[in-house]
Design a protein around this nucleic acid. Structure first.
Lengths: 124, 124
DNA sequence: ATAATACTTGGAGTTGGCTCTAAGTCAAGG
DNA sequence: CCTTGACTTAGAGCCAACTCCAAGTATTAT
């Protein structure tokens, strides 16, 4: 698969794909004899991994660190495990923040709906 | 309340408080005769609003826009309502992204736990 | 009154994550 | 072979959200 196809498949720019490779958020991509990127299924799996992690807000350096450990082989299994658990914890915290803010907004929105019916906004 | 106290109360820097005021994410803060910030309860309410919204990832320009509309008065009630509803929608989408990624991580973490028990990591 | 500390401002610098540019190379159609 | 368009690189530029800095003013303790 060409960089263009992968870019379209995941809705990210070709620049971003090259950037992820440069910083190590995905391992070096397979190339043709001429040096052109030719993504294999495995390469695409790594792209998908990076895209999912980013869409949840994981920083690129964490993704790169995971990737680096993976390349180092089995001796890094427990480190990778630890990294994933840490990141999971952060995501759960973020989710709780989001839920709290959604609840806050719901309260405010409720007030606005009353205000629009009655013409009175009884607060700040 | 001084800027230092507010900063400590909410765990954000004095620089950030001044920055929020400069860009309009909070309305102009009450001052002493000498020009020193002296946060009233109302000012603190706005700070809390900004901190909550930011912690959920709402961009500062949206917070500033809400604040601007608020200052314009009752004629902007329906606009403010709309803004809140839009932002709520974005937060719900983010939350869904987070949940999906947490589930993905749980799957991976499960694999690592099996790997650490059996010595086999049966995948990539 | 004076020193030490906390505040003020405008503006420059930093970080993360892209995004764009320039100059050159590769691949397919005519 | 030659053109056209997609690809390559290193490196510069951009945006959001701070964060820091310098130079000056205010407040507090002695």
């Amino acid at each position: 698969m060409t960089i263009k196809e992968v870019s379209e498949k995941y809705g990210i720019s070709q620049d971003t794909l090259r950037y992820y490779e440069k910083i190590g958020a995905i391992p070096p991509v397979t190339r043709t004899a001429g040096g052109v990127r030719n993504y294999t299924e495995a390469d695409i799996g790594w792209v998908e991994n990076a895209v999912c992690m980013r869409s949840a807000g994981l920083p690129v350096d964490v993704i790169a660190e995971y990737c680096r450990l993976y390349i180092l082989g089995d001796s890094t299994i427990s480190e990778r495990h630890k990294l994933l658990v840490e990141q999971r914890k952060k995501l759960v915290e973020q989710k709780e923040q989001l839920e709290a803010e959604i609840a806050r907004l719901d309260y405010k929105i409720g007030r606005y709906e009353i205000a629009e019916k009655t013409g009175v906004l009884s607060w700040k």
